[in-house]
Design a protein around this nucleic acid. Structure first.
Lengths: 118, 118
DNA sequence: ATTAGTAGTAAACAAAAGGTTAGTGGTAAC
DNA sequence: GTTACCACTAACCTTTTGTTTACTACTAAT
């Protein structure tokens, strides 16, 4: 048993720092989308770029570096002709499963609400 | 029974558009934090600004306008001396409950992981 | 009488995020 | 022999986001 606030941030302050922590790592326009693309089994740079609609090579490159630094992705270089680079999703990225699920569900719900309102 | 893809986006394309839809509305640095602050019962402009650490008046003002446009917040003006403005969270904002919960839980988990790694 | 709180807005600016274009050096298909 | 794919990256530019300061016009406390 621990007495520190750890599991359920019902209080506003705890909720705010916890959500702040999440957004610091997986916030922004692209990070979650790249993770979703990789969960499907996509692996190569251009493949990811084709899957994640609208992302530029420059931005994808920097997002992948940050995702690697945070332990969501492993970069594997096959030093052959031509150089093939694989991006592999890690087990740690699986901890985002619920976040992705609830976000996707909410997105679907919201879209259908908008459709009805027109 | 409907045959359209609606409930569970296991496929990557559906997941990507659904998450895109969510981020379009609740993405960015501040939106979810302002919603969390309002869920606690906070209501007035300066009160929200004090709760959401780091937000400037200008940004809070524009975030509140967007949140109002998207149906998460109602702005209620009590035209008295001095003018008091209440920001009330709507029922629709409650649909974000699960999203907030999973994000907060992940944030807590991630922080403790980082702590262990040091 | 000064200070602080009420809810903001305008202006000017800085910083962060993102887009576009062009290019590397090699292979492989048409 | 031209085009296209591979995995990027540098340079430059635009857009978005955010900060700071100052200001409104009135009230309540010290």
């Amino acid at each position: 048993m621990d007495s520190t606030i750890v599991a359920r941030p019902r209080d506003c302050a705890g909720m705010l720092t916890a959500i702040g922590d999440s957004l610091y790592v997986i916030g922004g326009k692209w990070k979650l989308r790249v993770i979703v693309a990789l969960r499907e089994g996509n692996k190569r740079f251009n493949e990811i770029q084709r899957t994640v609609d609208g992302i530029s090579a420059r931005v994808l490159s920097s997002e992948l570096k940050e995702l690697e630094m945070n332990g969501f992705v492993k970069r594997i270089v096959h030093a052959q002709t031509p150089v093939v680079v694989e991006y592999q999703i890690t087990e740690y990225a699986d901890t985002l499963g619920e976040v992705l699920r609830t976000l996707a569900e909410w997105g679907i719900m919201h879209r259908s609400k908008i459709r009805k309102e027109r």
